[in-house]
Nucleic acid binder design. Structure first.
Lengths: 169, 169
DNA sequence: TATTGTTATACTCTATAACTATA
DNA sequence: TATAGTTATAGAGTATAACAATA
């Protein structure tokens, strides 16, 4: 099931008529696969990737208003309501009224939230380890470095989250 | 807007509290971004990535039945109906009744379909070129080779298409 | 009765707009 | 009146189930 095992009638050649699938296609293929795997790994913990993104960003910006954090991760006010609701239901995040401006909430991680974040990070590390187990240490480093350069070139910082692009059309 | 320009109050340190975003996260980030870019590049041509996937697979399997091709790319019969409808409306694909079994259709690329496929491949090449413009030739090759190994390790062949996984749960 | 392709239906996701309470 | 957050509504996309024609 690794590559060309299917007995296909009469393929033109070994490769697909001379068309090379390059790193761009591979990035999409692998990105989709890895995202799906990560989602599955998170399932036992009762959260989804977007929750992880939110917890991560929140850990760096505790106390800021709901919509302010929404802007950071590229979610509109409506989406934030649902996401924060879900995290609050799980006891991972807390809304605290801002006494100075009673319209807004400050968002805070609970202890359970901090705990969850640590566990998810561990899951992510393990997942990545399994993913790169066939690579040598230097190869992993080189891969990471190359991907970092591509990401930086494309204006992606560690801040941005996969699913939600800051500005969309 | 490239990296750390936002004047944030008081980040704990330069990096995110010691948590390293590794290549797994980068793959998801980049895969999502590149897929979106590709979608935008295809817009002027009037098609979407899934159409490209279909055309590509069809070029290697002309004449086979609709559902057989659907299985190849991981789409169920219902999805195939809509996808083939869209491609037929655009004049890129043709359904031909199978005289031997009048229940099934054989799918074929039209000349316009072949033409479109060539143009989309050109777009993909250009896109990839722009994406990797900051890398040297050897770096690009190394990146591609490493990604290929990861993909192979994960059971991804050139056959599989990003969005649709062959077996899902 | 089983299979190919199609149509219908329900469910989820996302995006937009309308609403409330504070300012 | 403007803003933070919330709720309501509509559209797109996806998945499942029922259906018609042919074998």
């Amino acid at each position: 099931m690794t590559d060309g095992g299917d007995a296909r009638p009469a393929g033109p050649g070994r490769e697909h008529e001379g068309f090379e699938f390059g790193f761009a296609f591979l990035l999409v293929q692998l990105g989709t696969l890895v995202a799906g795997q990560f989602r599955e790994q998170l399932e036992p913990l009762g959260i989804e990737p977007r929750h992880f993104g939110m917890l991560t960003r929140l850990a760096q910006n505790e106390g800021r208003a709901q919509q302010a954090i929404g802007e950071l991760i590229g979610l509109n006010p409506t989406q934030m309501v649902f996401l924060v609701d879900e995290l609050e239901d799980r006891g991972l995040v807390e809304r605290r009224r801002n006494p100075a401006d009673r319209r807004s909430y400050g968002l805070y991680l609970t202890d359970a939230g901090r705990d969850m974040l640590a566990r998810v990070r561990a899951v992510a590390q393990t997942h990545q380890g399994a993913l790169g187990s066939s690579l040598t240490g230097p190869e992993r480093e080189q891969l990471t470095a190359l991907l970092r350069r591509l990401a930086a070139e494309q204006g992606l910082s560690g801040q941005s989250l996969p699913g939600a692009s800051p500005r969309r059309r």
